[in-house]
Design a protein around this nucleic acid. Structure first.
Lengths: 210, 210
DNA sequence: TAGATTGTTAATCGATTAACAATC
DNA sequence: TAGATTGTTAATCGATTAACAATC
């Protein structure tokens, strides 16, 4: 299905909002409630659902449990996703210790770095030399990688990841990596995000950026 | 000027691409070159420029130096931006040590945390107790803050920032903060970014996400 | 049943692209 | 001058919203 990126982002937000509603004891929702919780129109909610053939009942709305299950399936969160990180610098380390991923069914299984001082091959979450990335990824059939190396090293690391079979990359290096063939790249540029805040802060009309 | 977020993101990308072109020795560019460098259409480049009254010459294209200057002005990069960080955990620490900001005219001037073990008031980049945030921000007239605290603490920290006069916030807590009144908030959600990679990786049609 | 909510179609809105006259 | 590139208008494309018939 060829779908708008914003639509997929909304799907994630619906899932998160539903989790909160469930914890609060709710069993069903209407498009109206969910729209409020996420900050979109009810029509948008129903439209998004209809794209993915998610149906409710005409007067009863949607069952929260079923909805969460369907969204998790669409978003590929049925099974645990194993992820490797290249780069054990500041950002790599922060990501490696970040708790948020585990709760979302994402498991960082290994980190790789060129600096021998960073290595820690016996740790629960081991840090291996970068040369081992290819064999590790192949052996464990990893599909997702995070790039957290300096911009100068990023293209080579991307190349290593691609040749070893990785299909999805989240890039934190401040250089825009372009996807080739059948690989997906999401570039997160921290300077750019901050630059955006500064621009809209100075511009007369305030906006909700994300 | 009320402008599309994607347009502003492109402006930042043009600026970055121009910096590289300048370093390579180029003095002028055509919309065609810049479009190639950034991965958009030449028409898009000219359209974006025309929105901000950036003009070139009909056959000579655009002078790179002038262009960079104009873009920097539009993006509010004329003067150094002072920024504070709330939270000296993994992400806060990574951001505080991150080199990329300085090059972009962004200076982290102070970090705040509730954990007494994290404090370091005498460092070049000091870590103060969170209670000092308000007075510091007011005293130094800071306009931009980064939130890197757990999601449970994020709303209170936002409130503190707003009351002390901060107008722009970059939020890394995995909870979507909504802007009130005349404040700008940009939410960066790491799980969501990774979730997106996973979705598009599994979907048949690959895309360039950013 | 009467009332409320879905699912979908059509209308609207906005952003991107194409095209071309102006002009260097 | 001839040729190439800008700046802008109009056309296209796509996403969001409104509206409403279907129906629980």
């Amino acid at each position: 299905m060829i779908t708008n990126r914003n639509c997929i982002i909304r799907l994630s937000r619906y899932k998160n909002a539903l989790g909160r509603l469930k914890q609060m004891g709710f069993v069903k929702v209407f498009s109206d409630n969910l729209a409020d919780a996420v900050g979109v129109t009810p029509a948008q909610v129903r439209k998004d659902f209809s794209i993915f053939d998610i149906t409710g009942s005409k007067r009863g709305g949607y069952q929260i449990d079923q909805l969460i299950e369907k969204l998790n399936h669409i978003l590929g969160k049925d099974e645990l996703q194993k992820v490797v990180i290249a780069g054990a610098g500041h950002i790599g380390t922060a990501l490696m210790k970040y708790k948020g991923f585990q709760q979302e069914g994402i498991k960082i299984v290994a980190v790789f770095d060129i600096d021998p001082g960073k290595l820690d091959e016996k740790a629960e979450l081991p840090v291996y030399p970068l040369e081992k990335l290819k064999s590790f990824v192949r052996e464990h059939n990893i599909k997702v990688g995070i790039i957290a190396v300096p911009d100068t090293a990023a293209p080579q690391v991307l190349e290593m990841m691609i040749t070893s079979g990785i299909k999805g990359v989240l890039n934190f290096a401040p250089i825009r990596l372009r996807p080739s063939q059948d690989i997906v790249i999401n570039n997160v540029n921290l300077e750019l995000e901050l630059e955006n805040v500064i621009y809209y802060m100075k511009s007369p009309l305030t906006q909700d950026l994300h």
